[in-house]
């Protein structure tokens, strides 16, 4: 029982981590709290739903297509809403309010257009078989979640830490003006970071839609609360922090639902956050601000 719960928790946590990675990257580099981030998650879920149910596309194609579509939406929204604010050096409160208004409008617009119903991916989109290891059973959907999360997280770490483009991203994160003096086009880096973040959220939307078999316009909103818990707990802008905090939150939620009460699992996430901030105000790993991102 406990082994199974732990496995379920880690797999749920993997999607939280994936979702939070994009969120923390966006904050770490662009220095804005972009609340439209949850919408990319919803968008990813809906694109995958549309492709699989209406066009009969397989998941192998629908997952990357949903990620790319969500990434493109992220670039458009960032350009429309935040580019001018960044240029004017507006404070964090301005970006918070603008994106809060925008995301509420986006969810409401989507609900008006598509209805509030919960949609499901076709049952044959993924096999029903499962991997059984002693007392632990892992479904194919869970295996896909784990595989996709590991691959995407590894790709992100490689991009940011080891690629030439990643060096440019880290330079812009530290000081966009001086990055410009190096010949780096900070606006292009911002677009790239938006795309990557949006794609991670979109992929997360497909995977969560698959895990819970439920896709609806406000799914991104519930996820954003967890996103906040994870990125604050992991340390804002800290990629490894987000990975570990995501896994931790998933495990804590599943254990709470399994051993206490499933109604408590959201409260427990926030209790964990308060506890972490009490003891380590800079996040779990508490690195100095200048070294993050």
């Amino acid at each position: 029982m406990l082994a199974q719960q732990l496995v379920n928790g880690i797999l749920l946590g993997a999607t939280y981590a994936l979702f939070a990675l994009g969120f923390t990257l966006m904050f770490g580099v662009l220095r804005v709290i972009n609340l439209t981030y949850g919408f990319y998650f919803t968008a990813g879920g809906f694109v995958a739903w549309y492709l699989t149910t209406r066009l009969g596309v397989g998941l192998a194609l629908a997952l990357p297509a949903a990620a790319v579509a969500a990434g493109a939406i992220a670039v458009v929204l960032d350009t429309l809403l935040l580019r001018r604010l960044r240029r004017a050096r507006a404070g964090e409160l301005a970006s918070l309010m603008v994106t809060l208004g925008a995301v509420l409008a986006l969810y409401a617009g989507m609900t008006a257009l598509l209805g509030p119903d919960i949609r499901r991916l076709p049952p044959d989109v993924i096999g029903t078989g499962a991997l059984v290891l002693g007392p632990v059973r892992v479904t194919q959907a869970q295996l896909l979640i784990l595989g996709a999360s590991v691959v995407l997280a590894a790709a992100l770490v490689w991009l940011v830490r080891f690629s030439r483009l990643g060096l440019g991203i880290r330079a812009v994160a530290e000081n966009p003006d001086v990055a410009g003096l190096m010949g780096i086009d900070a606006a292009r880096i911002a677009a790239l970071v938006s795309f990557v973040s949006g794609a991670l959220a979109g992929a997360g939307g497909v995977l969560i839609g698959l895990a819970f078999n439920a896709i609806h316009p406000y799914m991104g909103e519930a996820m954003m609360l967890r996103g906040f818990v994870v990125i604050i707990m992991g340390g804002l802008g800290d990629i490894f922090g987000a990975l570990l905090a995501g896994l931790l939150l998933g495990v804590v939620e599943v254990l709470t639902a399994g051993y206490l009460d499933s109604g408590l699992k959201e409260a427990v996430g926030f209790a964990l956050l308060v506890l972490v901030l009490w003891t380590r105000p800079a996040g779990l790993f508490g690195r100095p601000v200048a070294r993050r991102a």
Binding site: R164, L167, G168, R170, A171, E174, N175, V178, A179, M182, G183, I184, A290, R291, R292, A293
Partner: peptide, 15 residues
């Protein structure tokens, strides 16, 4: 770039 290494700063100079 205080958080980047000396080598990374030089690489950025030749961006």
């Amino acid at each position: 770039f205080a958080g980047l290494t000396v080598a990374e700063n030089l690489t950025l100079g030749a961006w």
